[in-house]
Design a protein around this nucleic acid. Structure first.
Ligand SMILES: [Mn+2]
Ligand SMILES: [Mn+2]
Ligand SMILES: [Zn+2]
Ligand SMILES: [Zn+2]
Lengths: 145, 145
DNA sequence: CATATATTTGAAATTGAAAATCAAGAACAT
DNA sequence: ATGTTCTTGATTTTCAATTTCAAATATATG
């Protein structure tokens, strides 16, 4: 699975005429071995520990490349930090975001997805993407109130 | 309707022990007479034309006050500009956002709202707010492609 | 292998929105 | 009127993200 994603990125890079660099390999390794919804700064710091030479700009640039390659998705929550999550082909989900502990829970709802398409149709809109986030308190944080 | 909102803000200000200032009156007038989904910068520039003395900081602060007072709602789309829209009591809607012409179309869908509550319940989550945005091309922009 | 060329990197500077600072000005209770 | 407290707005600061550009590196070619 990790290997497949590496292959997918190599294919993308080859098709785009991008060069193969040590930095992109390292950043991809770290991204693929990191839990979901990692912020750029988090990933940068994790990488820096063992590869102090790698710079901020490269991490930012490379995550944008992963997004373009279809390996990653940008998530903009309401805290001013861009996060990235792993993309698996054909899969889509939305997010419950806990404002207490910052946990992010994923969910899928086919009915909501279908209703969104109907709304778009009704307005003559062609949807390219959507964002559905439910903000609140997770079970654990509710218990601690 | 505009008068009611002014009264509502005055009540809020009184309850909070806020002073009545010329600036807040002006900003409220402009906000209430502006179309939906205005960005802070847009509103600031509009006000500045006839009231050059009013500063950025005051516009930012005052829109936050309106939000607290329940007259306005912050909207964070994906362009790094905070927008504010009018809030009418008991009303809620979500947004279709055209990435071609930046138009914002409002919609309501009771079924989606209900499904969101069910999802939250299923995960033991207590929802405080949510965000649903459909990004794509509006009918006009599709025609111009 | 050498060498030319084009891409990539990373430190540093820049950007842009938003928030913080703080002295001067304004509102309000007395 | 006067003193106290709040508010304002020019300016500075913050912070994520992007841009810049000289040096480093990848790769194509002989
Ligand atoms: Mn996710
Ligand atoms: Mn709206
Ligand atoms: Zn939580
Ligand atoms: Zn449009």
């Amino acid at each position: 699975m990790i290997l497949e994603k590496k292959k997918a990125f190599n294919a993308f890079a080859a098709a785009k005429g991008l060069r193969s660099t040590r930095q992109r390999d390292i950043i991809l390794d770290f991204f693929l071995s990191t839990r979901q919804h990692v912020s750029v700064e988090e990933l940068y710091l994790k990488i820096k520990a063992s590869h102090p030479g790698i710079g901020h700009a490269t991490v930012y640039r490379t995550l944008k490349l992963f997004t373009e390659a279809g390996l990653a998705r940008e998530i903009l929550l309401n805290d001013g930090q861009t996060r990235y999550e792993h993309v698996s082909a054909g899969e889509h989900h939305d997010h419950l975001v806990c404002t207490g502990c910052n946990a992010i829970i994923e969910f899928e709802d086919e009915t909501i997805e279908k209703l969104q398409k109907e709304i778009a149709l009704l307005h003559g809109f062609m949807i390219k993407s959507h964002k559905l986030e439910l903000y609140g308190l997770c079970a654990a944080c509710r218990a601690n109130q």
